[in-house]
Amino acid sequence: MIRVDDLSVSYGAVKALRNVSLEASPGLITAVLGANGAGKTTLLRTISGLVNPVGGDIHLGDTSLLRMPTEEICRLGLAHVPEGRGVIEELTVEDNLRLGALASKVDIAEGLEAQYAQFPALGDRRKKYCATLSGGERQMLAMARALIAQPRVLLLDEPSLGLAPQVTSDLMKLILRLCESKNLTVILVEQNAKGALRIAHNAVVLHLGAVVASGDAQTVAADEDLRRYYLGLVE
């Protein structure tokens, strides 16, 4: 379980997060929604230790992640698929995957096998350099690379960005299936509120760095004001 308490982050004079609190539990998807600049990416980067907060605390289970280096947070079982997916283009598909497994206790050969079984398209391209992959394939690779280490927590930053609607829809279903089958704690950051709310159990809406609404996903999705003013969901 991830618990964020009263988290504040500043970039110089700019307050990126103001007293944000949220909880994400195993087997559930917590969607973090909001417009550009709402602080969604900053929230994930702070959880991963890439950004230092000026106040508040973050717990993974009973362990505080504050001031812990990013690589050690990962080794606790937290996988973060960054915005833009973070596929290393100069490496092959297989090397990207192996890299994901190195820090964990997972047997690399077995891990590769499992991911290729889950994403057959990656198996076909295992020796290809990632610069040659399409957007959808990159997203698959980023997911597989995060999953190969068998994490407990999965942070996803805008996974649908740049993907075709059908690919996005398949991806969302996959995230839900993984979350439930592996009892993963998923925090899903999305600008695509519609797609995210369809699979999320809980939702948090950020606006200018502050939480303006949180609750179960259906309630958030049904709130006319939220839809109109923060989520851009009014037809």
């Binding site: 690589e71 990962c74 290393i88 490496l91």
Partner: peptide, 23 residues
């Protein structure tokens, strides 16, 4: 494995960190 981590650290240090590489 060391070489892979060295290459990843050089190519994309932040991504490497996110994957648990002690950059």
């Amino acid at each position: 494995k060391l070489g892979l981590q060295l290459r990843a650290s050089a190519l994309a240090p932040e991504v490497a960190r996110l994957l648990g590489v002690r950059v």
